[in-house]
Design a protein around this nucleic acid. Structure first.
Ligand SMILES: [Mn+2]
Ligand SMILES: [Mn+2]
Ligand SMILES: [Zn+2]
Ligand SMILES: [Zn+2]
Lengths: 150, 150
DNA sequence: GGAATGAGTTGGAATGATTCCAATTTGCAA
DNA sequence: TTGCAAATTGGAATCATTCCAACTCATTCC
């Protein structure tokens, strides 16, 4: 069900792992491919189900391990909303998340650099932030079904 | 250990509860007082410990219940960071949170209305958001020990 | 080659915050 | 008083995540 990684994506995976002294494995390839295949912010369980179609023996523990590894080497971001299961996002561009309360879907919202700047500027002296997380909650008129893009 | 609610705070509690058809109880008074006494974004467990000093028989379940009730009637906000325990905040003014990775402390960051506006404006058409949450993560030069105000 | 080494994987057990539930207790109202 | 409905309580159940010990597999070293 899951298509192989493109040459480019595979290289990206390989290099990112290499920088933190880790290797590409069949499991990591598939988990990464699953994330790229459908960018709908899947939970670990979602990833597990999808990845299993290509690799039936894959274990849930390994999915947790792979995702943790990817987060560690900056290949993907974790996305948390309230107390729900953690979701994973391979979009590395600065962006916020919009959580549709009706459907549970999570959408990426592009974040202009000037907004990020103005946010940083509201921090009092002495506060140094490496990370800013912004999440919206509400309803959206769930438009285009959103293709199963790359 | 915990001082009683001021006349003003008690009224506030009473009215907020009333609007959603609920009543003031000794447990709710104490839990609310605990939140107001030390605005350090305590976890449920923190609140439980502090409240027990004034009411030894108080149960953890009740603390969960009270806090849920307060969130429901808009008296306090929940604050989540990553996968950690939920924290509670009685500051109703629009504000972001800064989580100090060194100490674990959570600080309120005032949020100017124009920032909120500009954030709303980045939402594509069709997205209606009722809530925006902003959280910073980083280090702060932990200044003034922050008084046990109010 | 064949053993040693070490990262990665696996299944299942352990954790821990939160939720559920059934039994009491409480505050009012009939 | 008696009866109710809401609130409280203690303990069990949930469930995402973490932990762990055994196993696999590729690579390095005689
Ligand atoms: Mn969607
Ligand atoms: Mn502090
Ligand atoms: Zn995203
Ligand atoms: Zn706050």
């Amino acid at each position: 069900m899951i298509q192989k990684l493109t040459e480019h994506d595979r290289e990206n995976l390989q290099e990112s792992l290499a920088t933190s002294g880790q290797k590409v494995t069949p499991q990591r390839e598939i988990v990464f491919a699953v994330l790229l295949a459908k960018r709908d912010h899947p939970t670990v369980e979602d990833v597990f189900q999808r990845a299993r179609e290509s690799m039936p023996g894959l274990s849930l523990a390994t999915v947790y391990n792979c995702l943790e590894t990817f987060v560690g080497c900056g290949l993907v971001r974790q996305v948390n909303h309230e107390r729900e299961s953690t979701r994973y996002c391979p979009n590395l561009a600065p962006h916020a998340h919009f959580r549709d309360e009706a459907t549970g879907h999570v959408h990426d919202i592009e974040l202009p650099p000037e907004i990020i700047q103005s946010l940083r500027s509201i921090l009092p002296a002495g506060f140094n932030s490496e990370t800013i997380e912004i999440s919206f909650r509400g309803r959206s008129q769930e438009t285009a079904p959103r293709s199963t893009s790359n």
